[in-house]
């Protein structure tokens, strides 16, 4: 069964497409915005902006290190730099440049990593950003955003441009089930309750919000009341929403399309341990690279499905 189907969601835009549309639409109003690309603008979807505003778009070629530091230089001269590449190449190849040319000086650079997670499919593990959230969270002062669907990505793009300081926005390649309305609210650092419930909370972000909603539907059929939180901002984390979930539902499952270490699960666990310890279970990629294949098949094989979430939840509920 396709993601979102069980909970009646319809497939919509990929988050990268929604970002590209929003960036282009905001370009006229946000005159300080410039883009810096490493020759993958037609994949990250900065291309529509670059075509509409050619004087504000720079493609520096396949050179991620230079790309990020150029973005830092532009930002230090007052620009809002949007620098986009595949999540894996942006965070892993240019990590030191993000650290020294962006994060340490606290510049207004918007890092955008597309092709995150294993759902990109056939291109295989070299192209899959599976550690990007951990790397981005490791840098002081960088806000880290992982959006779930098209509408919330558009809202997040605007919020990101309005935010003063470095941000990382994680985007996916495949079409995503639509969860939000077009006029949805998006506030950096404030989780969205996409479904209320009392017995257990599923905390997810990215494509896994759909998996969590499917799992919630399945669990409700078995008589459990399930809360689903879209924790679209991993840093700064919405501690209040996590504490409320711990206190009010007593059990938490964290779901993410990312390695186990240093991602959303780690951050949620820190908050729960410190503020209100309750049992927490985790659904994620674990500690492994994936492989080539179709995206849905990969999610299935590596356990990033509604069934996995249901199993984890039932383990806590029993």
């Amino acid at each position: 069964m396709a993601l979102g189907e069980l909970s009646g969601l319809k497939l919509g835009q990929a988050t990268r497409d929604a970002f590209g549309d929003a960036l282009k639409d905001l370009g006229a109003e946000y005159k300080d915005v410039v883009t810096v690309d490493g020759d993958v603008g037609n994949s990250t979807r900065t291309e529509p902006f670059a075509q509409a505003f050619p004087d504000r778009a720079f493609n520096v070629g396949i050179a991620e290190s230079n790309m990020v530091s150029v973005a830092g230089g532009l930002a230090s001269s007052g620009k809002t730099s949007v620098v986009a590449s595949f999540a894996a190449f942006l965070l892993c190849n240019a990590y030191d440049q993000i650290r020294m040319s962006v994060a340490f000086p606290g510049l207004n650079v918007k890092l955008v990593g597309s092709h995150a997670g294993i759902s990109i499919g056939e291109d295989g593990p070299s192209q899959m950003g599976i550690e990007d959230v951990a790397l981005a969270c490791s840098l002081p002062g960088v806000a880290v955003i992982v959006t779930a669907d098209g509408p919330s990505t558009k809202a997040a793009t605007k919020a990101m441009l309005d935010h003063k300081g470095p941000t990382y926005l994680r985007l996916g390649r495949p079409k995503a089930p639509v969860i939000y309305d077009a006029d949805c609210d998006f506030t950096i650092g404030k989780a969205n309750v996409v479904k209320e419930g009392k017995d257990i909370t599923l905390i997810a972000n990215g494509l896994m919000v759909s998996a969590a909603l499917d799992a919630a539907t399945a669990l409700e059929k078995k008589g459990h009341s399930v809360r689903v939180l879209d924790m679209h901002t991993v840093k700064p984390i919405d501690e209040a929403a996590i504490i409320a979930a711990a206190k009010e539902t007593g059990r938490i499952v964290v779901v993410e399309e990312h390695l186990a270490h240093g991602g959303l699960g780690s951050v949620v666990a820190m908050v729960v341990c410190k503020e209100h310890p309750v049992p927490v279970s985790f659904v994620n990629l674990g500690d492994t690279f994936a492989e080539s294949g179709d995206g849905d098949g990969l999610l299935e094989k590596y356990g990033l499905t509604a069934d996995s979430v249901v199993n984890a939840a039932e383990g806590l509920l029993s």
Binding site: S65, V68, V70, G72, S76, S77, P105
Partner: peptide, 21 residues
Amino acid sequence: EASTGSLGQGLSIGLGQALAA
């Protein structure tokens, strides 16, 4: 004008500033 110390980044930063101008 630039926080440096990890070698290799200054020319790229300067290029960004030149493009901003």
